[in-house]
Design a protein around this nucleic acid. Structure first.
Length: 290
DNA sequence: CCTCAGGGCTCTC
DNA sequence: GAGAGCCCTGAG
């Protein structure tokens, strides 16, 4: 069993990358490293002598490099962000080491359908439940892990089973989205060369995929940084820091895209990570409203 | 015991 | 365009 590794030396802190809310299948191990299931493989990120080693099996190096977005210079991105907006200094400094992972689009779609009106610990639990129930076994270092099931599998899943796995009101969304993808009614594998508008239109054909979920898919699986997902937290943060008034998610996205341009996606990530972990800085703004 | 919110969406009006 | 309702769980 060949085990290989590559080194990530620059602009990377595992805790920031894996716990900024973009992914749900990475977990911290007892010794402080991270282990995750990525498509049909188990990956480990291990710190040795101040360097991070990615261990993997059954994958090409190019896959790993793309997954960790290693061809992008985040340090340069940060400098450009700071040069155009000083308000982001604290958030960028705090979130240094976040990389936007290039996730599998199918798993990303279902993951963010599950995220609807849900919280992160429960999202992780539901995805784990689905993988254990429907996924394939992966053996890694004598342990068993489970891959996320393919569209054809979830297309045939029963409502009863998925309810048992705690998917709740999202059950019909999941099954019908899987059916539409499996049948080819919605083409999720031919989106690469399409415009943001075209991609969003295609994704929103899927039940349970609205503006925000489609934005997450475009950012986290297509690597489109000129996208700014607006959830309840980002809404609050933007209203608090920039707008000083209640505003609709659509207007907030418009504002952010105009201001942060092709770096909006990573800015969104820094803001989310920083303010979720420092909620006190958001006192003074109401929790909802628009 | 209760209410409320959580990386929102759909359906109805 | 606005508003109610939603499966479930932990927090308060």
């Amino acid at each position: 069993m060949t085990q290989r590794f590559i080194i990530i030396e620059k602009d990377f802190i595992p805790e920031h990358t894996f716990e900024c809310g973009q992914c749900f299948r990475w977990n911290k191990t007892d010794n402080g490293n991270y282990i995750g299931i990525v498509s049909d493989s188990v990956l480990e990120v291990i710190k040795e002598h101040d360097k991070y080693f990615v261990y993997f099996e059954n994958k090409e190096e190019d896959f790993i490099k793309e997954y960790f977005d290693l061809n992008r210079d985040y340090n340069m991105l940060i400098n450009e962000i700071l040069s155009m907006d000083d308000k982001l200094r604290d958030a960028v400094k705090y979130g240094f080491g976040i990389r936007i992972l290039r996730q599998d689009i199918w798993e990303c779609i279902i993951s963010f359908i599950i995220s609807i009106n849900n919280n992160i610990p429960r999202i992780k639990k539901i995805i784990e439940n689905i993988s254990r129930y429907y996924g394939k076994e992966i053996y890694y270092k004598g342990r068993v892990f489970y891959s996320f099931p393919k569209p054809e599998v979830l297309a045939k899943a029963s409502e009863k089973e998925l309810r048992m796995l705690n998917c709740g009101f999202r059950v019909p969304y999941i099954i019908n989205a899987a059916k539409m993808i499996e049948s080819g009614d919605v083409d999720i594998y031919g989106l690469k060369n399409k415009s943001n508008e075209e991609v969003r239109k295609e994704l929103m054909k899927l039940p349970g995929v609205g503006e925000k979920v489609s934005s997450c898919i475009m950012l986290y699986s297509l690597g489109r940084f000129d996208i700014f997902p607006v959830d309840v937290w980002i809404k609050r943060i933007m209203e608090n820091i920039y707008l000083k008034r209640y505003e609709s998610p659509r207007e907030i996205e418009k504002f952010a895209l105009a201001r942060f341009k092709d770096k909006a996606g990573i800015v969104q990530q820094y803001l989310y990570f920083y303010f979720r972990n420092n909620k006190d800085f958001l006192k003074g703004i109401s929790k909802s409203g628009c």
